[in-house]
Design a protein around this nucleic acid. Structure first.
Lengths: 170, 170
DNA sequence: GCGACCAGGTTTGCACATCAAACCGACCCG
DNA sequence: CGGGTCGGTTTGATGTGCAAACCTGGTCGC
């Protein structure tokens, strides 16, 4: 299931980026998601694809299952074996991987080892070059001016450093 | 400036996602980027905003400067002080933060503490709901079928078993 | 039935990273 | 001078990461 993080328990600013990183920010976690999304569902395949040590992989897989990002699905009875599959929450992480891939292609490697292409409709196949747009108005998100406002929940949280004061006597 | 990672030196599949995580995937790194992008450029502000221990923060800031994601910019001479600012490469990480924010809002917290809005043109202000689209053809990227092909560079690197399709399984 | 082999972990022993808290030096303010 | 701020560095305890060996079932060849 979905494992909601208690934002008040996190260090620093209450922010769902930090909450997300709490669930999938440890080493290997996102690479495990990548492998599973590529169709590698078995322990050994994920181990080979990511290069993670086996004990770390065990820990990460369990954590990701607990976080509701992966689910275990048995594929064999007589040697009881299960594969790991993305849940809806896990599939929603693919944009994160896309963002990292695009950044990595541009800034972290001399020449990208993989090219993504697609063929929308019947027009020519071309390379994917992704941008974030607002689904409501179609405007690009990163360029335009975005304003951040606290929600009621956020307002309740951000009185944090004052909570020592029981007498209101300034 | 840009510190390219040697893909052959990474464990597992040669992939720029792994390379990107090598540069900005350690704990606190992305939260540091978040703080700087919010306008907190000083050591103490970043420490408070992220909640990171000060020695870790020192290490991460140095690593991010070495990776070309941040740059140090002096703002005072007589006590020699510098602030940290995003480079072009650092600004290109904002889509990664946007992706994590959106996932975190949806899956990692009960009620998001911050809402993003924007006002494109003169129409009504509305909440940002971002999607990846292909800049070339305008099609949404995550839904449509994307194919992965190895580049020459990738072929040179790889003795690994490629290549399934992205399975959006149920 | 016997030994080899495989998948999916668990255990072990050691190295390295992380943490909170104390410390430090330069500077400023009164 | 005394106290405070800023931007770190040092310290000692604790935790996490790693490679490699080991274990537990089950299958396969013969």
């Amino acid at each position: 299931m979905t494992a909601a993080i208690d934002l008040a328990g996190l260090p620093g600013r209450p922010c769902t980026i930090a909450a997300a990183l709490e669930l999938v920010g440890e080493r290997w976690s996102l690479l495990v998601i990548r492998e599973v999304s590529l169709g590698n569902h078995r322990f050994s395949d994920i181990a080979r694809g990511t290069g993670a040590p086996r004990d770390r992989l065990t820990a990460r897989l369990n954590a990701l299952v607990a976080a509701g990002v992966l689910e275990k699905r048995p594929y064999s009875d007589s040697p009881p074996r299960s594969g790991y599959h993305l849940t809806a929450s896990g599939r929603d992480l693919l944009p994160v991987l896309q963002a990292l891939l695009q950044w990595g292609d541009r800034w972290a490697a001399d020449s990208p080892p993989v090219r993504l292409t697609h063929a929308p409709g019947d027009s020519a196949v071309h390379q994917v070059d992704a941008a974030w747009i607002c689904r409501t108005c179609g405007e690009p998100v990163m360029g335009s001016r975005v304003t951040r406002e606290l929600t009621p929940a956020g307002r309740a949280l951000s009185g944090l450093p004052d909570e020592e004061e029981h007498d209101h006597d300034h």
